[in-house]
Write a protein that binds this DNA or RNA. Structure first.
Length: 628
RNA sequence: GCCAGCGUAGCUCAGUGGUAGAGCAGCUGAUUCGUAAUCAGCAGGUCAAGGGUUCAACCCCCUUCGCUGGCUCCA
């Protein structure tokens, strides 16, 4: 065999072997990128190629590891449950899954058995072998193996695909693009996590399959760290903390998806709402209020009856149908239309903390993150087409500023026209363009989400994460040419003619409920001082300082510090412990020393203590208020 | 809405075909104490709801409601 020269991780190397494996000896390497394409280590080497090794602990490597783990899981399932028909089994951001069609459900005991079998298969260190097969041949192969889902997938491949790749390890063969780790022995740390239902091809009209979720990591230490993370995340779950901190509750008697704010949750919400009112007022928004039930006719004009009816609640008043509002826009349009508007008046920005009601499917309700009634920090901006980009840009500025106040990281997506929608193609094109241009102008990264827009217009969505990394939409900016048309809104231009304004729907926090939910998880209940429902607990050491403690509490209350007083006949350690469990930022301890000096001993959440005067403490509390 | 699992005291959880237990919280009393739990006593549950099987059901079966994890959908 002649010598071949390639570059390996940037360095020129010559070799006389024939596959990547001959060249790469490092056991941590699971695959390679050859001229940019991910391939197996069993791939042949040709001269002049640029080869970059992919280690198990790299992003690509972990993905390959997990994908391979899903194949091993499928093999284990087929061995233990021959009636299970494999469908698809990809890697995900934090693990992998494989969907099976099987009449009997998998139990958690089954999961343990499958995991045990996987360990056995990994112990055999069976190589993953790639095979190419003609399309027709592959179809016949899977037909013969009794795997109709694979046959369907091959059948649905584009016409120009003539050959497909198969991966075989041990007794299992899967239709798969690869690449995979060289052998099952490379899987050193994995765990099966849960079983769930999933529709074939993600379509609810299709058969429901059984999905087994698992995860895999390069080394056991990483797996343990991930499992610990999941445990820790459970402690941050907003539903658990909501109960423990007495922020909110749900009641089976009241109905699912309906939040009840308890006194401390009510405070938190008030703080957020006051913050919002202030920040919007400062930016030229007018605060307005609209009713919750509107004549059915309004929803017909808006297009909700045709496009959103199944999500709405209706009621009848004096023989007439009224729709309970799922959105706040209609009242705002009526305010706009209440008089003739000049081009000089625009933009007009109407802000409402509007309580909306949507009939969410029963299975999707989730604590504060998905409810049937929620309050949006909603605004509708009516502007001239030439003002559109500037308005969108300043909304994005506001989003950036508000997210910074709370310390959230976020991602953005642009969603385009869905199937069920209203308006002309030209308007959709123009509106989508405006959103894209605004983000481009600011140089912000975004993904495109095809067909995911609102029925009346495209949108920019901003997403933030909960404790276990699930993404939730908060801010959204929606560009709308349709509703101004449908409600025949206009302004008088400088030419004295009537013109159609453009309408922007936008929220910043999104749903106040959802935002509070994510906020709780983000801070694990230990809110920054300015958001804490209880900022300080005043506690005396013995009855001898009860009066002094009360006078301190009085001073704090007068300064609008949100405080509680704990004069119970308990040891100071006990009172401290309770305040800590409640995640109160400041404990104000007063004993004889403080009483004598006219001071307070301040204990922070981290255990730090310092003695100061009451007015100094008040200033400390106030210093946490955000500057907006 | 679909698939699977779950529902026992305010909370966290034991429990068995022969009619229910712990810890914390609560209440009462004692203790007056310096930065994460003082001690003792008391009280608290139609075992989610409805129906069925059984001599007997919290336990087995069915239905409904709710919750959890996913899927679909969505702020």
């Amino acid at each position: 065999m002649p010598d071949i020269t390639v570059t390996l991780d940037g360095k020129p190397v010559s070799l006389d072997g024939s596959t990547l494996r001959d060249l790469i000896t490092d056991a941590r390497v699971v695959a390679a990128r050859v001229d940019g394409a991910l391939v197996d280590l069993s791939s042949p080497v040709a001269g002049g190629q640029s080869i970059v090794t992919v280690k198990a602990d790299s992003a690509d490597g972990v993905q390959i590891l997990r994908h391979s783990a899903s194949h091993v899981m499928a093999e284990a399932v087929k061995i233990l449950f021959p009636d299970a028909r494999p469908t698809i089994g990809p890697a995900t951001d934090d693990g992998f899954y494989y969907d099976f069609d099987r009449d009997e459900p998998f139990s958690s005991e089954d999961l343990a058995k499958i995991e045990e079998k996987m360990n056995e298969l990994v112990g055999q260190d069976a190589p993953f072998v790639r095979k190419e097969m003609g399309r027709t041949e592959a179809k016949a192969f899977f037909e013969q193996r009794g795997e109709p889902y694979k046959v369907e997938i091959i059948g649905d491949l584009p016409d120009d695909v003539e050959t497909v790749s198969l991966y075989e390890q041990g007794s299992f063969v899967d239709l798969c693009r690869g690449p995979h780790v060289p052998a099952t022995g490379y899987l050193k740390a994995f765990k099966l996590l849960s079983v769930a239902g999933a529709y074939w091809r993600g379509d609810e009209r299709n058969r429901m399959l059984q999905r087994i979720y698992g995860t895999a990591f390069p080394v056991p230490k990483d797996l343990r760290a991930y499992l610990t993370f999941l445990e820790e995340a459970k402690k941050r779950d907003h539903r658990k903390l909501g109960r423990e901190l007495e922020l909110f509750m749900f009641s089976e008697d009241l109905g699912p998806g309906m939040v009840i704010y308890m006194p401390k949750g009510g405070r938190l919400r008030t703080i957020l709402e006051d913050f919002e009112k202030k920040i919007h007022f400062k930016r030229g928004y007018d605060i307005v209020y609209g009713p919750s039930i509107l004549r059915g006719r309004m929803w017909e004009i808006s297009g909700h009856m045709d496009n959103y009816k199944e999500n709405m609640y209706f009621t009848e008043v004096d023989g007439q149908v009224y729709g309970i509002k799922p959105m706040n826009c209609l009242s705002h349009i009526l305010i706009y239309k209440s008089k003739v508007r000049s081009y000089r008046d625009l933009p007009l920005r109407y802000f409402e903390l509007g309580n909306v009601t949507r009939h969410e499917k029963s299975g999707v309700i989730h604590g504060l993150l998905r409810t049937r009634q929620f309050t949006q920090d909603d605004a509708h901006i009516f502007c001239r087409p030439d003002q559109l980009i500037e308005e969108i840009t300043s909304i994005i500025d506001l989003v950036e500023e508000v997210m910074a106040v709370f310390g959230f990281e976020y991602t953005m997506e642009i969603s385009t026209r869905p199937e069920k929608s209203i308006g002309s193609d030209a308007d959709w094109e123009m509106a989508t363009r405006a959103l894209i241009d605004s983000l481009d102008k600011k140089g912000l990264p975004y993904d495109i989400n095809e067909g995911d827009g609102a029925f009346y217009g495209p949108k920019i969505d901003v997403k933030i994460k909960d404790a276990i990394g699930r993404q939730w939409q908060c801010a959204t900016i929606q560009c709308d040419f349709s509703l101004p048309e449908r409600f025949d809104t206009h302004y008088i231009g400088s030419d004295g003619e009537k013109h159609r304004p453009v309408m922007l729907h936008r929220v910043i926090l999104g749903s106040i409920e959802r935002f509070i939910g994510v906020l709780i998880e983000h801070f694990a209940g230990a809110f920054p001082v300015w958001l804490s429902p209880v900022q300080a607990v005043v506690m005396n050491i013995t009855d001898a300082q009860a009066e002094y403690a009360a006078s301190v509490a009085e001073a704090l209350k007068a300064a609008e510090v949100r405080m509680e007083i704990d004069l119970r006949n308990e040891k100071i350690g006990f009172k401290i412990r309770e305040a800590r469990v409640q995640k109160v930022p400041y404990m104000v301890v007063v004993g004889d020393r403080e009483k004598e000096d006219g001071t307070v001993s301040i204990r922070e959440r981290d255990g730090q203590q310092q003695t100061m005067r009451v007015d100094e403490f008040i200033a400390l509390v106030k210093s946490s208020d955000p500057v907006i």
